[in-house]
């Protein structure tokens, strides 16, 4: 929950999002603490991606205030918001190798090769990509590609990082390791992030703060306990399921 004395990294007030004339989200209000991750859960088609796209300035009609580090950005084009959007699909540039992809944002800022290396090398190490720097992105595994995309986003030191179910297409083991890696890197680097997912366990693993999107509304919870206590989020049902499964296994 946002500390009232602290400036939020990201504050959204009275945001309405519509797409093709159809209202998707109404009156969205939330604040993400600096260096925290707001995990947003919602079923498919609930408007999670529309919310992220509106925050990033990527189309759709959005009315309302979006502040990043107390600076209004809702009237700015995407490239000037300081908000990086990480797609569900890594979308690595096929004409660049792994190192080129990670350093892409710095190249946009006309950084010298040596300054790019200063940023990229530690990221390569932190994300476990050593030895893959010169590889063609198309030869990487799904998890490796997602790590490169994550590194590319981190390299520009974004004010806010938006993650749109980035691990949804990975196998369960890789997905778990990516969630752990995200938590570790987000903590180490003080990332302010908004992570949307339809997976309850992922939501609980990656989030510091929690929200749910349903019926065009975004409900923000005062803490993990409040989020888990809301039956609509399915935590109680999940616990009951595993409890029953455990009982059945013991009987067998």
């Amino acid at each position: 929950m946002a500390d009232p004395g602290m400036n939020p990294g990201l504050r959204v007030s009275g945001l309405d999002v519509s797409l093709g004339g159809r209202a998707i989200l109404r009156d969205v209000d939330f604040a993400v603490d600096p260096h925290s991750t707001l995990a947003v859960i919602g079923p498919s088609g609930s408007g999670k991606t529309s919310l992220l796209r509106a925050l990033a300035g990527l189309g759709g009609r959005a009315n309302g205030a979006i502040e990043v580090d107390r600076r209004r950005v809702d009237a700015l084009p995407a490239h000037r918001r300081g908000i990086v959007y990480l797609n569900q699909e890594p979308l690595l540039f096929p004409h660049l190798d792994v190192r080129g992809n990670i350093g892409f944002g710095l190249r946009l800022r006309h950084r010298s090769a040596s300054r790019i290396a200063v940023v990229v090398d530690p990221l390569v190490a932190a994300l476990g990509l050593q030895g893959l720097e010169s590889r063609d992105p198309l030869t990487l595994s799904g998890g490796e590609r997602q790590r490169v995309a994550f590194g590319r986003a981190l390299a520009v030191d974004p004010a806010v990082l938006l993650l749109d179910e980035p691990f949804a297409s990975l196998d369960p083991a890789t997905r778990l390791s990516m969630q752990t890696l995200f938590r570790q890197v987000a903590r180490d680097r003080g990332i302010t992030a908004l992570f949307v997912t339809h997976d309850l366990k992922e939501c609980l693993r990656v989030g510091d703060q929690f929200a749910a999107i349903r019926d065009g509304r975004c409900r923000v919870y005062p803490g993990r306990a409040a989020f888990c206590a809301d039956p609509a989020n399915g935590v109680a049902a999940e616990i009951a399921f595993w409890s029953d499964a455990g009982t059945s296994l013991r009987r067998e």
């Binding site: 990033a56 300035g57 990527l58 189309g59 084009p77 995407a78 490239h79 918001r81 908000i83 990086v84 959007y85 797609n87 699909e89 979308l91 540039f93 096929p94 004409h95 892409f104 944002g105 190249r107 946009l108 800022r109 590319r152 986003a153 520009v156 938006l162």
Partner: peptide, 25 residues
């Protein structure tokens, strides 16, 4: 389009998106 949007959020101006993303693709 998604490549170009991704580049924009990384800070690419429309011109940079053309020259550094679209043309190579």
């Amino acid at each position: 389009g998604a490549f170009l949007e991704g580049a924009a959020t990384l800070g690419a101006t429309p011109r940079q998106a053309w020259t550094l993303v679209l043309l190579p693709l």
